[in-house]
């Protein structure tokens, strides 16, 4: 974390050239060998696959060879010409932004709340229970969702009808798709996300609290003035990383929730890519869309990082 403080580094190191520095740091290089190797082998070596975004890729073909047909930016143009192009982007972004607005803070909120539970048994029970939904396969979550919100006798509609209302088609209504998606996302993910904040909170120096108590601060004050600011760097880091995947909403849950009539909000980039790329086998086109995705994510992260650096003086790099 870069925090702008003045450090007085011992001045011995002035005057070393590049190679001398390399030699001086040889131990650090050794330490970082394994992660470095990993990056090169498993992340950079396969990166050559990105080139199929610019080809008319056929299965089984080598990625670069005499037979490869280069089509330049044709796939990108095709994507931008698609009448639904903006729809996919907008749907993806809205799900993402909504989840940052609602699900992201939920994790922090839960961590703070659970931290204030004074009865140890309840606290550990609560934290354990809250992470359970994370383990349930998304298929079952959507099935349960459908069961509860079914227009054909689901629990919620039973209550509505018994109170004299008319059954609502939650799963088939466009206006309910996002709330259901985000709501179930909060249910499944808040507890799990809270783990990292709980750890951050637990790492706060207790003497700060002691001092505050002596000054007469109540727990509310302590929460606002100590706990929150101390975990702010953690929050900022997690937020920036989260923004870096803003355009990458996974297809599985959305695909399971789609009912056709909700497609104007429920058809996102990844479900489209799944249909085109995996089901229909058009890997170049899908890869091009994926590349576009990545570029947008990169721009978003760099922007988020700059903003964070200005506002909170802490940034990712």
């Amino acid at each position: 974390m870069k925090t702008k403080t003045k450090t007085n580094e011992p001045q011995v190191k002035i005057g070393l050239n590049f190679w001398q520095k390399m030699a001086r740091d040889w131990q650090l290089w050794v330490l970082s060998l394994i992660p470095l190797l990993y990056l090169i082998l498993f992340r950079y070596l396969p990166m050559f696959g990105v080139v199929i975004s610019f080809q008319d890729y056929k299965m089984g073909a080598p990625f670069i060879g005499p037979k490869t047909e280069w089509v330049g930016f044709d796939h990108f143009i095709r994507f931008f010409k698609n009448p639904y192009c903006w729809r996919y982007i907008r749907n993806t972004l809205s799900l993402s932004v909504l989840s940052v607005i609602f699900i992201f803070p939920a994790g922090i909120f839960l961590a703070l709340v659970f931290n204030e539970i004074r009865i140890k048994k309840i606290q550990s029970a609560a934290t354990t229970i809250s992470i359970l939904p994370h383990f349930i396969s998304v298929v079952v979550i959507v099935a349960m969702l459908r069961n509860i919100f079914s227009v054909d006798g689901g629990l919620v509609n039973k209550v509505i009808v018994s109170m004299g209302g008319e059954a609502i088609d939650f799963m088939g209504a466009s206006e309910w798709f996002r709330p259901l998606y985000i709501g179930s996302g909060m249910w499944a993910g808040a507890g799990y996300a809270a783990i990292v904040y709980t750890a951050a909170i637990a790492g706060i120096d207790p003497s700060l609290y002691e001092a505050a108590k002596i000054d007469g601060a109540n727990r509310w004050r302590q929460l606002l003035n100590i706990t929150l600011p101390c975990i702010l760097p953690t929050i900022a880091t997690m937020l920036i990383l989260r923004i870096g995947s803003l355009m990458s909403v996974g297809y599985e849950k959305v695909l399971l929730m789609q009912t056709g009539s909700t497609n104007d909000v429920a058809d996102i980039l990844s479900t489209y890519t799944y249909r085109i790329g995996i089901l229909d086998g058009q890997s170049s086109y899908a890869s091009a869309i994926g590349l576009f995705n990545s570029v947008v994510n990169l721009i978003l992260v760099i922007s988020a990082n700059k903003v964070s650096a200005k506002l909170t003086e802490s940034s990712l790099w």
């Binding site: 698609n82 088939g172 056709g260 058809d267």
Partner: peptide
């Protein structure tokens, strides 16, 4: 066009 056209149909059919 096939995937897209089918998609439009599926959506409107449901609606």
């Amino acid at each position: 066009y096939n995937v897209d056209v089918k998609g439009v149909f599926g959506e409107w059919r449901a609606k």
